[in-house]
Structures are given as C-alpha cells and as structure tokens.
Design a protein around this nucleic acid. Structure first.
Lengths: 203, 203
DNA sequence: ACCTGAACACCGTTCAAGT
DNA sequence: ACCTGAACACCGTTCAAGT
C-alpha cells in the first residue's frame, strides 16, 4: 500500500502499473494478484488509506454544521496532498472510501434533525458536490504535472476560455479571469455552505 | 460521430476503440487520427454532441430558477439515455460540453442577481453537484450492464451495504433500503433545489 | 487531402511451474 | 500459502507508403 501510494504521488495514476509496483516491491507482477483481485481493488484500497488518514477525530464535540465542514475539509486536504485521490473518488463512487464519507455526512444530517425522507437527498447532495469538485481538481492537477505551477496552468486554461466566442459565452468570459486567482479551498467550502444553507431552509 | 455514439450506447465506453470504430466505418484505424487528435478528443466530441442535443431551448422565457431546473433536467436526460456521458463529463471537466453547461448555469446565476463575487462559487457549486451525481449514475449503470435491471442491481449493492458493521455504519444501514427504490431524477432535482435554496439565502 | 494497415510500446490479467 | 515471469489478448498511437 505504501509503495502504491508513493508511485501514485510521484508519477500519477498512469504510473501505477502492476509491473511498476512489482518492480518497486522486488517481486513478480503476478504476485500482486494474490493480495488484490484487480486494479480497481488496488486503487480503492489506496484511496481508502488516504481518506481514512484525513478523517477528522472527535467530530462529536462539534455542531452538525461544523462537523460537516470538518469532514469536507478532510476530504479537500486528502485530495490536495494526493491529487490522484480526486479522480479516484469520482471515478468509482461505490468504493469504500466514498461510503466512509457518506457515513460521516449522513450521521451529521441526522443530527441536524432532517426528517427521514430528506436525509438521503441531503447527504448525497453534499457527497455529490464533493465528488464533482474533486473531479475538477483532479484534471486541473493533471494539467500542470509538467513543472509549471498551478497558477500558470490555470492561466493557460483561462486564455483558452477567452478564445471562445464572447457572444455565445458571456459568463465564461466574465469568470475566466477569476480562474487563475481563485482559492480552491474557499470554493470547496463555499459550496458546502451553500448546500448547508439550503438544507437549513428545508427543515 | 454517429458511429462512435452508437458504439458507446451499445457497448459502453470500453467498447469504443479505434479498431472498433474503424471497423464500423470500413476504414483503417489510423484514418481516424486525421480527424481527431486522440481518444480524449473523440470522447469529448461525442459527449458535446449529446449534451448539445439535450440543451433546452427558449430558456429566456423562464425564471432563473426554472431555467436552472430545465438545464439540469437536460443534463439528467442526456445521461439517462446515454449512460457513458455521466462518466465522460465527470472524468474530463474541462471539455467543451462542461463549459457549455457552466455557461448556461452562469447566465442564470447572473439573472438571479447574485453579486459578482458569489457568481463563480454559485455556478460551480451547481455544476459540481451535477458532475458528482453524474459520476455515481455512470458507475451504477455500469454495474447492471449484464442483463439485470436497475432495481435488482441496486438491490445487490444495498445488500453489500447491509453486510458492513452496523455499529460503525448506522447511516449506511438506515439508507440502504432506499437505494433500490429511490428515483434518480427526483434525487438529482432535490439536490439542485437544495443548492438553489442556499443561493437564495445568500442574496 | 485523406486513407491503409503493419508496427511499436505499452497495458491488465492468467497460469503452469516453482518454493 | 505465496511467488515467478512468460504468455495472452488486448490497447492507443505512429508512420511510411499509398491514392
């Protein structure tokens, strides 16, 4: 697991092959199949390893809203320090790491006093938002793997956006300059707060 | 494009290979590279084709909230009738199809009267939620490709959830029975409404 | 300008054979 | 019980050669 995560961190998702992992572990590529059914299971295990590490402790002391924010920050930080986790979470939403997140969110949704009928929708709305933004960060980080930093890479994307026909894309043009300067963590938490506010009105 | 979409619809994303597409078009696999840079571009083009087809017309007549709901329903229906679109949207959030959706959402967020600072977060929150739920439907549909229908497949997933330790997964246990009977479209729109309500309180 | 199709450099996965 | 590593059945992509 350590070796797999280290490869994923250093070479990205494409770098984790059975041959590469076997090489690092000084074993044959077939040996890995004794411990893991296939590549999906390998990636799911690595992802859960990371998500579990960033799960906040002692969430019980916090208000439900604060607990949900803490859970969200944990997911954000996990993705922030291991960019491949974003793609893996959204690419395989039935893996255990995602259930782990849903369980945490759901417990707090119950604590918020949402009636039984609304709990499923409220918890999965929070979860889906996280997975969706996770997917975006995943691609973003993929785009600036080659040395260039985040800002210059996003500036390149923004420049592409500005090339689109401004008549047909007024909003994209309006928002493109914000792309290179915006703060991912702030965006992530703003979305959470928006959904929390929406949940609050539904009580 | 027609041939690619037809393969994607019938065989899923894994079925679309350059060899398969070339075979269907009665040409060589290398020929496709004259028209498309690589597989990402091929998939992005197919995805935009579908998303554009399901974009609602005459959104101008509707209130901003109703317009956002109409846009969301279009995305939902696109995924519903072409399951591979869900994975493709969330797996590649910088492709043009996603910008198309963001432009539609953003225009309505502006119409809602959100101040400039909040527009980016509001529009991307709606977008991220859609992409995240799209990713979930993508995997779900993948799970019951082999003949079994949606309900029996989700029942199998729910049964797996019930095998988890109930002490550590109370919410998962509570919500598992809802999984096979819940309505995807209702869940999708409930999330949109939650975010819209949240946006409303932020005005 | 566009097509052909063999060739290249990979993959994940399997499995007879080992220890 | 666990490992070895060649072999299989694929991929996306390239490119000299054609029309």
């Amino acid at each position: 697991m350590q070796a797999a995560i280290s490869i994923l961190d250093n070479e990205g998702a494409a770098g984790l092959t059975f041959r590469a992992l076997a090489g690092r572990l000084k074993t044959g590529s077939g040996a890995i199949y004794w411990h893991v059914a296939d590549k999906d299971e390998l990636l799911a295990a690595a992802t859960d390893h990371v998500i579990a590490k960033f799960e906040p402790q002692d969430v019980g002391r916090l208000s439900p809203q604060e607990a949900i924010r803490a859970l969200a920050l944990g997911v954000f930080d996990a993705i922030d320090s291991h960019p491949w986790v974003g793609a893996q979470l959204s690419g395989n939403p039935f893996q255990y790491a995602v259930l782990r997140i849903l369980e945490g969110l759901g417990t707090q949704v119950v604590a918020l006093g949402i009636p039984e009928k609304g709990r499923f929708n409220a918890a999965t709305a929070l979860l889906s938002f996280m997975l969706g933004l996770a997917a975006q960060y995943a691609v973003a980080s993929h785009h600036f793997r080659d040395g260039s930093d985040r800002t210059t890479a996003l500036r390149a994307v923004a420049a592409k956006w500005m090339e689109l026909d401004p008549e047909q894309h007024p909003f994209i043009h309006q928002v493109a300059p914000l792309l290179p300067v915006h703060d991912d963590r702030e965006q992530f938490m703003a979305g959470i707060d928006l959904i929390l506010a929406g949940i609050d009105t539904s009580r």
